[in-house]
Every structure is written in C-alpha cells, then in structure tokens.
Amino acid sequence: MEPFTTLTAVACPIPWVDVDTDRIVPARFMSTPRSEGYGQFLFHDFRRTRDGKLSMTHPLDRPERKGAQIIVAKRNFGCGSSREAAVYALVDFGIRCVIAPSFGEIFAGNALSNGLLAARVTEQQAEDLLDELAAGGRDLTVDLEMRTISNGRGPIRFDIDPAARLRLLNGWDDVAMTLSFSEQIAAFQARDAAARGWARPVADRGG
C-alpha cells in the first residue's frame, strides 16, 4: 500500500448526510473484477442518465472540481453495506481523502485497507469547509503527520484512530504484519482450546 503523508488537491463538496454505499456504487456493478476499475461506477445513478451518459449535474462533474482527490461530506458518510467496492470506486476515481464528521464503520475499515484517508472533523468544521468550497474555494492540503487540514486560512485539526494513522503513514500491509505474530496466534489457540472446547464446530452430521 502506498503511504499517505500529505496531499494538496482539489476538494469537492458532497453536502449530504447519510451518503450510503448503495449510492456510492450500486450493487449491480459488484461482479466486476477490480482489475477493470471501479471509478466509472462512482455515484453512478446520481451522475448518469439511464443510457449511462454523465448528466454533468453532480458536484464531482462540475468543471471547477475536475481532478478532485478530496471529498468533503456531512455525517455518516459510507453508511450501509459492507461493500468494499464503494472504496474501490472512490480510489479508482482518484479520491484519496474523505473529510466528514462521521463515517459508516465498515466503510472506515475498508478505506484504511485501501489507503484512503477518512478524516473526522466536527460538524461545524465540516460546515465551514463546505461553505468555503461553495464560496469558490478549491484546493485543500491534508497533512496526516500533523493531522491538519489547511485551506489558505488557518489549519484545522482532524481526528483519526492512532493505529489507522500509523498504518496509512507507513503504508503497512496488515496481513504481513499479522503473520509476523504467528507465535502469539498459536499460543492463543492452545489457551483457547482448553477454555472453550465447545467453540470448535462439530462436523455437520447431515453430510
């Protein structure tokens, strides 16, 4: 995973609450292999007409948001389904950071797995950022090391779990990290077999 340190990029407002993952990517695209890219599916049914053409009315398609790599949104962004495809769609489109007061929790985990920074700010800070963008603001700078977002005016602090921050900063791969703890995992299993003998499934007697 590519480390995330700082990013200065065009920010796009998505000024709604409860943007669910069905909106971010409709279920019907999820049989597509990742290698084909999910960027084209991002907010598909909100950006495209029935024949698949961009209607150019969505904030992401406005000319001044071209090349956006940052999204600013309201509460509970990414709620709903566990589909990691929602994060694939954002990342493949080019988004590297979403700023919002809160996130769906599975979404936040998926973001982390894909190097997408989910930065939490207060509701007031999100409103202020959205107002600035609405008033013509364009670029934001996100500094993960310092945990700040700056926009030409003074920087604001954002929240992120310390472990998530470290993983993003270092681009750590968690499977490799976990496999390095194989001794501890084996020790757990030995302890656990004695404590919770019933936890092992009985072979299904029906076949």
């Binding site: 566990s82 990691e84 599975i106 985990g109 998926n110 797995s113």
Partner: peptide
C-alpha cells in the same frame, strides 16, 4: 467486514 478484511 469488507473484502480486504475477508482476505485477512
């Protein structure tokens, strides 16, 4: 969980 976590 999401797909990366499923893989994990």
């Amino acid at each position: 969980i999401g797909a990366s976590e499923v893989a994990h």
